[in-house]
Design a protein around this nucleic acid. Sequence first.
DNA 1: ACCTGAACACCGTTCAAGT
DNA 2: ACCTGAACACCGTTCAAGT
Lengths: 234, 234
Amino acid sequence: MATKTGKEAKPRIPLSKERVLHTAVDLADKTGIEKLTMRNLAHELGVEAMSLYYHVANKEVMLDGMVEAIIGEIGEVAGGFEPPAEGTDWKTAMRHRILSARQVMMRHQWAPGVLETRTTMSPPLLHYFDSLLGIFVHGGFSYDLAHHAMHTLGSRALGFNQELFVPDDQGPTDEENEAMLAEMASQLPFLTGMMMEIVHDDPDSTLGWCDDQTEFVFGLDLILNSLDTLRESE
Amino acid sequence: MATKTGKEAKPRIPLSKERVLHTAVDLADKTGIEKLTMRNLAHELGVEAMSLYYHVANKEVMLDGMVEAIIGEIGEVAGGFEPPAEGTDWKTAMRHRILSARQVMMRHQWAPGVLETRTTMSPPLLHYFDSLLGIFVHGGFSYDLAHHAMHTLGSRALGFNQELFVPDDQGPTDEENEAMLAEMASQLPFLTGMMMEIVHDDPDSTLGWCDDQTEFVFGLDLILNSLDTLRESE
DNA sequence: ACCTGAACACCGTTCAAGT
DNA sequence: ACCTGAACACCGTTCAAGT
């Protein structure tokens, strides 16, 4: 009752589009995207919900703005979107750029989901894609192959992969896991077989077993190497 | 006023979980997922919103059920999830299975988005993935490589690819496009270059230019071929 | 067993009004 | 110029009540 969470001091810092966006990003990081409501955000800013609408047209464009902020972060991590230094192998340049993007996505878990719901590409996003295309083209790709390449990368171009079925927050208990495995054995022979092998190699692993980073890099390298072969034979 | 949309005859067919789910799928197909509210669905069924809760626990499990229905459809299109006929090349089997899934995703545009928000794998979904794994393993993959392979496929395993930024419903006008291209030229040299080449080859194409099916198959084949090479050298 | 009316606790957003 | 109070049109969902 005595001190509420950091909205005590009357808002000396006036609201601004930037402050709204940055606070929104922080709040989404902290509480998850589903808790990012205009009301919650306003409260975090020590202000009424309706005040936000003076700085952002509506929630949808606010989300657009948050995405732009994220792209900016990628730029910081990657050291800008300029073409790689003369003589740099295109594959290492692309790998570096994409893994930089991934770093940013990792600290903003909500970002992939929001990215997927955007219907228009903001200028920063276009700029980012242009820079990826640049790496391809400077690396000797035709526009046609570079185009295919972008589609093949899909969301990996932004540093994330459709992780189908991230296991639930509350993981199954060990007993549930045990029971599940037993029942699965007959119905799902291959999944069971795979899991038993994995459990054998790493006893600590459970149903949510995968090392996302390893798997991401595996897929990324497979695609980049494959594209390189196509480029050579073009 | 005289005749409302097909809810005239009093509900001779009683509600049931199946009827709720199938109507939900149809309604999502017809009006889009964002219009699929419990109230709208109830109205479509000639019933009050609260009646739905007798047959489905809540909206989230209803969406789970809809996904299960979709997996069922994939089974119909693919002719079941049984392992491929003896001696079938794993790659053609996998390609066929995945392109069957894609057919189903194409007629339920909302399905990818809903799939991505699921947090638990329903039995039909597990069964589907098990069948894919089976194709890999029967094709000579180790469990370890098959595991990597599943991650590499990502959402492609279910017949869709993260199409980042499907252009807006209301496409830009020709003039807007023109203006955009002009402005882009300096800022986005590679995107502009690529688009100009594409426009040259196919004058009808615009910003929403890509042939999704072609691009999907390109990426899929690239990945499958690459995996085959890894399998051989394992 | 199956369906409903009224109500609750939320959303995003508009609009006229305050300073 | 910037912020707000009250209100609107929606959500999903609970719960006691109807048949």
